[in-house]
Design a protein around this nucleic acid. Structure first.
Length: 632
RNA sequence: GCUCAUAUAGCUCAGGCGGUAGAGCACUUCCUUGGUAAGGAAGAGGUCACUGGUUCGAUUCCAGUUAUGAGCACCA
């Protein structure tokens, strides 16, 4: 005799066990029709779930976020059914809901073609139209294994054997003839899927996410409660494509990449100007925060990398070179060993600590070819790296200062929404557990004392120490990992560095590794996409363009250009024999913040007519007034 | 690195079931001197990514290589 409590607090009594759907029916037929699933004591369940005892129940309809995940999961099942109907012999493996949609991994000899995807989507729509009831049933392990073995689904057998915990019941969901092992829950029938879905693309994916395993074919789709939301999503994708930094990099003449140097950037004048603005900005911030700046060699002897452990751990990802005398050198993949040598040079006192040593270090990493992606993943990049040498007692405060600095810097670029990830000791590591305990505590204590939220990623730390990663959310909600902070007592040990303490003995310092932009190249790419190429004035490679209307004003334009440049404003002139409308259009497409038009009137009055990038007429200004406007 | 796809003018792309290619924009020259998102005309520009194979003949078909794209794996 369950008593059901609804979200509004009202209670309903039933004289026998009831399903979620029964409850919805009891409330009203309209609600029953809209019912997709239920939440019983906080757990998402099928609408057919039967409740025996008193419970808190919420009806899930298409308005609930929870329903969207079910919808996407259903879409994966419907797609799998469509594929198996169309391509008999194809094995199904797994197919979860993901952000914005779903995928399903299939094992099949022949690759799916783009035409196949069209057919699959068509068949999915048919299956939706059939409105097959989705029914849950429970099997014992052996029966389930046999059932799937009988129809040749070897991957499903492996899932039942190895992924579903011993003792847990195996649930099967059926829709028509087709069925799948699945924990659920699901929607009541395939018809509930509606028409807000689309099959997107096919790609490879390793079975169980392990590159040692065979590669399956993964088909991705997107699914939404209705067609309108699907359309909105597709529109968002188009918008994101427009701000792709690779595309804008070409259009705005910032940089290019070349086949002869995969993963390395050719910086064009405008891109390089912006790149240097970022460096200058960071240099200033670091100086204010008590850092010193140094520079260490790019190519160093193999023995250094053996000492640091990189040769052992990352050798295949390093660029190395052998000289005529058969000595092996490596291009630095990191700055830390160089920094340590810098610290080791000369005797350090406790009075020197904390020693915050920064370097804009150019590093080379032989990244797997498939990992390369525009500026976001390159083989040659510049880190705004720094290593802080301090005592154990100073370690936590230094962490706090770094975290505060990085968050403040991101704000200057409009990134307010920063996710912090904490990664602790990995399996493959150097140093004792006792040391790792201290290091991990330093990071988490710092975060706790700053009352910052963070996510923990077990086992994801660097081989020499735990790390924090700072993930930026950009203007259109995408996440990018940028800054990092790592604490390390292992490299100091390996390199046997020390400082002289108050007691006159030598002590081992702690080493903090930190980068705030992370990779200048990557941060650059993110900024391009974040601002859609419309950089704030202080970052714009070209801040103003002066253009004439007729040849007559050319000398005045040149004079204005010179005056502005003398004031430190990055200015170009456009004296081409083109109409002013044409020039405006071009410089607008080039995202120049201020366009200064000069005709006879302006020459006469010693002024410029100012137009903003947004098309706003800022009126006719004297040159010094315009300078004030830019510099404010 | 793995799967699939792609590679034609500086850029964006069309084309050809095998007989050495075309548009728009950009570029050059000329006309035009025009007040806030495209004025007009003419011209120049390509070993159709690279290397092999099939063929009388390959940019087109096949194979390999390289690069790029979407994912997967990786990311000190």
């Amino acid at each position: 005799m369950p008593q059901i409590t609804l979200p509004d607090g009202s209670q309903r009594d039933f004289d026998k066990s009831v399903s979620v759907m029964d409850i919805a029916n009891d409330i009203g037929p309209g609600l029953a029709k809209a019912t997709l699933a239920g939440k019983v004591d906080g757990n998402l369940v099928d609408a057919s779930f039967v409740i025996e005892n008193d419970a808190k129940v919420a009806i899930v309809t298409s308005r609930d976020d929870a329903a969207l995940e079910l919808l996407r999961h259903d879409a994966a099942h419907v797609m799998a059914q469509a594929v198996q109907e169309l391509y008999p012999g194809t094995q199904v493996t797994i197919g979860p809901a993901i952000e914005d949609g779903f995928y399903y991994d299939f094992a099949r000899q022949d690759p799916f073609t783009p035409e196949d995807l069209v057919e699959i989507e068509k068949r999915m729509r048919e299956i939706v139209k059939r409105d097959l009831p989705i029914v849950r049933e429970v099997m014992d392990r052996e029966t389930a294994k046999q059932t799937f073995a009988d129809i040749g689904e070897t991957y499903k057998v492996e899932i039942i054997e190895e992924i579903i915990p011993e003792g847990e019941e195996v649930s099967i969901y059926r829709q028509g003839e087709w069925f799948d092992v699945c924990r659920g829950p699901h929607l009541p029938s395939t018809g509930k899927l509606g028409d807000g879905f689309k099959v997107m693309k096919v790609a490879g994916a390793y079975w169980r996410g392990d590159s040692k395993n065979e590669m399956l074919q993964r088909i991705y789709g997107t699914a939404w409660p209705d067609k309108k939301q699907l359309k909105a999503y597709l529109h968002r994708l188009e918008e994101a494509e427009k701000r792709d930094h690779r595309k804008l990099g070409r259009q705005l003449e910032l940089f290019h990449l070349h086949e002869e140097a995969p993963g390395s950037v050719f910086w064009h004048p405008k891109g390089w100007t912006l790149f240097n603005l970022l460096i200058n900005y960071m240099r200033k911030r670091q100086e204010d925060a008590g850092y010193i700046e140094v520079n260490t060699p790019d190519v160093m002897d193999r023995s250094l990398w053996e000492t640091s452990g990189h040769w052992e751990n990352y050798r295949e990802h390093m660029f190395s070179t052998q000289t005529e005398d058969e000595r092996v050198f490596a291009l630095k993949p990191m700055n830390c060993p160089g920094s340590v040598l810098m610290f080791a040079q000369g005797l350090k006192s406790y009075r020197d600590l904390p020693l915050r040593m920064a370097e804009f270090g150019k590093v080379h990493r032989y990244e797997p070819s498939g990992a390369l992606h525009g500026l976001l993943r390159v083989r040659h990049f510049t880190q705004d790296d720094a290593h802080i040498y301090c005592t154990e007692a100073q370690m936590e405060q230094e962490c706090i200062d770094v975290i505060a600095l990085v968050l403040d810097i991101y704000k200057d670029f409009g990134f307010e929404d920063v996710v912090i990830k904490f990664s602790d000791r990995p399996e493959n590591r150097i140093g004792s557990d006792k040391i790792w305990d201290k290091l991990e505590a330093a990071l988490t204590n710092a975060l706790d004392s700053m009352q910052l939220e963070y996510q923990t990623f077990p086992g994801e730390g660097a081989f020499y120490g735990p790390k924090l990663e700072f993930v930026l959310r950009d203007a259109i909600g995408r996440d990018w990992q940028c800054g990092t902070l790592q604490v390390d007592m292992n490299l100091p040990e390996r390199f046997d560095i020390a400082y002289v303490a108050e007691d006159g003995d030598r002590h081992r310092p702690v080493m903090l590794h930190r980068a705030l932009f992370g990779s200048l190249e990557r941060f650059f790419g993110i900024l391009v996409e974040h601002y859609e190429g419309k950089f704030p004035v202080w970052l714009s490679p070209v801040q103003a363009v002066v253009m004439n209307i007729t040849d007559k004003q050319a000398p005045y334009v040149e004079k204005v250009e010179k005056m502005l440049k003398n004031q430190g404003i990055r200015t170009i002139s456009d004296l081409r024999n083109e109409k002013v409308g044409f020039k405006i259009r071009e410089h607008t497409l080039q995202r120049i913040p201020y366009m200064l038009v000069v005709g006879d009137r302006e020459v006469e009055e010693e002024r410029v007519a100012v137009r903003s990038l947004g098309g706003e007429d800022l009126g006719s200004l004297a040159i010094d007034k315009f300078v004030d406007l830019v510099q404010q």
